[in-house]
Amino acid sequence: MADALELELKHLIIDTLELEDVTPEDIDREEPLFVEGLGLDSIDALELGLALQKTYGIKLEADSEESRRHFANLKSLAALVEERRVD
């Protein structure tokens, strides 16, 4: 179940952020999503926040410590969705 959600999130990230040449296999569940690892930037963070809101009804504070924790890697993102999704 967790694997299915993580795969779903990988596709969400790739599609939403228009990541050229990135496949789901390229996204490691424990690697950082931002700056290092996948190398996403601050605009991606806003875009991803919007996608989480649209897809799962999850609203996050734009620049809180809590949001930073949730966006650390795919694993933490999946945990957030698992806990807070409203669909």
Partner: peptide
Amino acid sequence: VPLSPARFG
């Protein structure tokens, strides 16, 4: 509809 930050940028 919320604006896409990337498109806005």
